[in-house]
Design a binder for these strands. Structure first.
Length: 648
DNA sequence: GAGCACTGC
């Protein structure tokens, strides 16, 4: 019921002595590697997992005096990785974390004037670039895990390339760029960085046998179940199994089925302990996958793609890959996110396979035929080509990029997606045309200061007008933490009944506010007491205070809060139709209230929502009941245009 | 009428 904890970094194993650092495969290559890197502006470094590249390269550079004039930055897609790597490297250097070696992630900065090796999230370096587009603090930027192609890494490619060029023109200290990746996309990286040399590092991956099915499988769940129990009957009980499935619902159902079957196994068959693993699972339950099963008992982990990259489990001998993943696509025409079960890419399949060979040789069962595999896409489509670009566009404009359409993307987003993002920012009042160039308005510049989606930044910035800044800050903070109302299928009734106590007939935003107020009372009035530091009310308050916003409370007047939401979410409005369905004001799309909404069983005549998600149906999520009049007041021009369009 | 991959600022 209450906020679940974030993935707190686990303390890494004790630092290896200098001799152990020398045993890493990469140590053999130290000399030649350094002499090459010393002379290069750009390099692409390819290394398997376990090569030690992420922990050692920054140290080698530092020890060899390369880049000592500035800071060596190492970016990571995930906070946990940035923090644990910094901890690891500072231990190896036998220094205190935050001195020579430090890290910066959102709301958590452990660096000092002495810091020379800095681990940070890719998004964080991008944010720093807004204040300093040529990254003058840094002498070296290492973009790690580049093959993951997160939207932030992709934008950083363009930013560091531009910074490098600019610094050269200005005759400043050169910026060295090192792209680190697993064995894919090599040519693309090298080409993009003007033919940068590719250096290969030996890994320490163990051999993995890969098996395909002989026939295509019509039911991958059934096939997975059969595989698990076949392995279970044949393999020694100390060898654990990791199964890749697509989502929470599916994983919970399969967990139950496996447990039921495991209860009725024939004599002589080992015990089995089945554990689900997905991101919205509370942290305490996620932790269970790291505990070794008792002797004579096999661990079977049923996971989403979270175990592909974010969570590494030791002791996995068998991987069962269904070849399916649930992933988001974005349709810019109607601003619709589609979440659908689809085939993985070849790269993803290899990533999954690799999870079987971390400590010893492994075995991977692919529940598809080799012919099917050959038809998979080579790479996963980069995130920048399948999501809403409003946030990124706002950041690029804050970076004063002269022209978004000609920005040097490694993989260009579609013109439609860029256009949709421009329109979205225009509706929010964040952009304007000046001398035929798109620039931020003063409001847009303030919006870029918040580490939030533009529509939520706008809501906060509007809140003083409605005298409800305190409430809006709370609501926006809670919206950004997905575990406030943790709701696993098994405990759904229980959660629903608890939530009933706090339900507001005015919608989900106000229900969240009620929950928070109740939580605050029982937990001793600590503002910002959310266990999840990612977006705490406190940290957003700080951002608001920096913009000198008055911290007013509307107290029991919820109409003002709803007015404020209507004024910032007017482009996400839907009206009840005579036939009982809902239709969006913007594109007359047929939509429904998501079952997780407190308004699911209600029929308010007019609502605004945070976003649409298409799964089996097109659902509105996070709704607030509003007056139709407020919408018109919020954006008269917009609604006049809509009316005209409707008449034509 | 009935359901939510994964990150990140």
């Amino acid at each position: 019921m209450l906020p679940g904890s974030p993935a707190v970094p686990r303390r890494p194993p004790p630092p290896p002595a200098a001799s152990q650092r020398r045993e890493l495969p990469i140590f053999q290559a130290r000399g030649p590697l350094l002499s090459q890197l010393r002379g290069l502006e750009c390099a692409v470094l390819i290394g398997e997992t376990g090569s030690g590249k992420t922990t050692q390269i920054p140290q080698y550079l530092y020890e060899a005096g390369i880049g000592r004039q500035g800071i060596i930055a190492v970016t990571q897609p995930r906070r946990v990785a940035a923090i644990s790597l910094a901890t690891r490297v500072s231990d190896e250097k036998r220094t205190e974390l935050g001195k020579l070696v430090g890290y910066t992630v959102r709301f958590d900065d452990l660096t000092s004037d002495e810091t020379r090796i800095k681990f940070l999230t890719d998004g964080m370096l991008l944010r720093e670039a807004i204040g300093d587009p040529i990254l003058r603090k840094y002498s070296v930027v290492i973009l790690d895990e580049a093959h993951e192609r997160t939207i932030h890494t992709d934008v950083l490619f363009g930013v560091v390339k531009a910074a490098q060029k600019k610094r050269k023109e200005l005759g400043k200290l050169p910026l060295k760029v090192i792209v680190m990746s697993a064995t894919m996309d090599v040519d693309q990286f090298s080409q993009y960085f003007n033919g940068a040399p590719v250096l290969y590092l030996e890994g320490r991956q163990h051999p993995i046998q890969v098996f395909y099915t002989k026939q295509p499988q019509s039911d991958y769940l059934q096939a997975a179940l059969v595989s698990v129990f076949q392995i279970h009957q044949e393999a020694p009980s100390s060898q654990d199994i990791l199964v890749f499935l697509t989502g929470q619902e599916e994983i919970e159902a399969m967990t139950k089925t496996c447990r039921d079957i495991a209860k009725h196994l024939p004599d002589g068959c080992p015990q089995m302990t089945v554990m689900p693993l997905y991101a919205s699972l509370p942290y305490s339950q996620q932790l269970r996958v790291f505990q070794a099963a008792p002797k004579g008992c096999r661990k079977v982990i049923l996971s989403t793609n979270i175990a592909e990259t974010s969570i590494t489990i030791s002791g996995i001998k068998y991987v069962v890959d269904t070849g399916m993943v649930k992933a988001k696509k974005y349709n810019p025409e109607i601003g619709l996110e589609v979440l659908a079960v689809q085939r993985v890419s070849k790269a993803q399949a290899w990533q999954r396979t690799g999870r079987a060979g971390r400590e010893d040789s492994g075995i991977c069962y692919r529940l598809y035929t080799e012919d099917e595999f050959e038809k998979f896409d080579k790479m996963t489509v980069p995130e920048i080509q399948r999501c809403n670009l409003a946030s990124v566009l706002l950041q690029l404009l804050a970076l004063r990029i002269p022209n978004i359409v000609t920005f040097d993307f490694m993989s260009k987003p579609s013109p439609d997606a860029i256009q949709a993002a421009i329109e979205q920012l225009d509706l929010l009042g964040a952009v304007e045309r000046k001398e035929d160039q798109l620039v931020l308005t003063p409001l847009g510049r303030k919006m870029a200061a918040f580490p939030l989606e533009p529509k939520f930044s706008k809501t906060i910035l509007l809140s003083p007008k409605f005298h409800c800044t305190e409430e809006i800050l709370t609501i926006v903070s809670l919206l950004s933490v997905d575990s406030v109302l943790y709701n696993p299928p098994a405990r759904r009734d229980e959660v629903q009944s608890v939530r009933k106590k706090f339900i507001s007939s005015e919608g989900d935003h106000l229900t969240l506010l009620n929950v928070y107020r109740a939580f605050k009372n029982v937990s001793g009035n600590k503002v910002g007491c959310s266990e999840d530091p990612r977006v705490s009310p406190l940290s957003l308050c700080l951002a608001a205070i920096q913009l000198s916003m008055p911290m007013e409370s509307s107290r029991s007047d919820t109409a003002n809060i709803r007015r404020c939401l209507a004024h910032s979410l007017f482009m996400n409005a839907a009206e009840l139709q005579p036939d009982g369905t809902y239709s969006t004001v913007n594109s007359h799309q047929l939509v429904a209230i998501h079952p997780s909404s407190v308004l699911f069983h209600c029929k308010p005549s007019c609502v605004v929502y945070n976003g649409l998600l298409h799964t089996n149906k097109c659902y509105m999520r996070d709704l607030c009941v509003v007056d139709a009049d407020w919408l018109y007041d919020a954006a008269p021009d917009y609604f006049r245009r809509k009316l005209r369009a409707a008449k034509n």
